[in-house]
Amino acid sequence: MKSSQIRILIVDDEAQIRRFLRIALETQGYEVIEAASGREGLSQFAQHPPQLVLLDLGLPDLDGKQVLKDLRSRSNVPVMILSVREDEDEKVAALDAGANDYVAKPFGAAELSARIRAVLRAHNGHQASQPVLRCGDLTIDVSRREVTAAGKAVKLSKKEFEILHLLTHNAGRVLTHSYILHTLWGPEHEHDTQYLRVYVGQLRAKLNDDPAKPHYIANEPGVGYRMLDHAV
């Protein structure tokens, strides 16, 4: 994979984590810059704007969420949260505050690389809206509103199509329940998780997707849904 131009900023107070991340990411051709605190991270961001930020939530000086907020006020650079915090609400809060994805420590190098690629691709996809989306054996023709899965055409309702489109557009990324509800139904339905669950259930049934062993839509309990990225 050619990614020699891509610069990644790591903001984590743990020297050992930075050390292995630097080695892993540099070996894959990324350029790496580091920061050990939130303030240092923000100043590094200003001096050498990166194309992706890996941000630890438990920083010694500023709350990671505050750093995220500051980053978001300046740029829409993809931000991936790294944290040992396992609190689901914490994840949702970070994602809703503008983080693009979330990796819980401890994580493996391969998992991280896959997530980084997915986030970067989704981010670049955002900028150029494609008329036809492909994700593995799933094809979505946006202008004709046609969906084929494993070569067979699937008939979807308007809302089902919108959900599938949104997830596929962000393939590989987790989208929180409230983000999906907010985007497709409007702010007043942000908490109607049950509503969303019903639609996703119907969508899975039509795509012949087994929730226990999902091929397309994976559930992130307590957080949201993720379209599995088969392009990796």
């Binding site: 743990e14 892993a24 894959q28 040992v84 396992e86 493996g108 190098a109």
Partner: peptide
Amino acid sequence: SHDLRTPLASIIGAATTLRDLGSE
């Protein structure tokens, strides 16, 4: 939760990097 996980994160990260990218 924090003090056990943090070193474990580094160990798992370093070990998986060694395994997955060893040749490079």
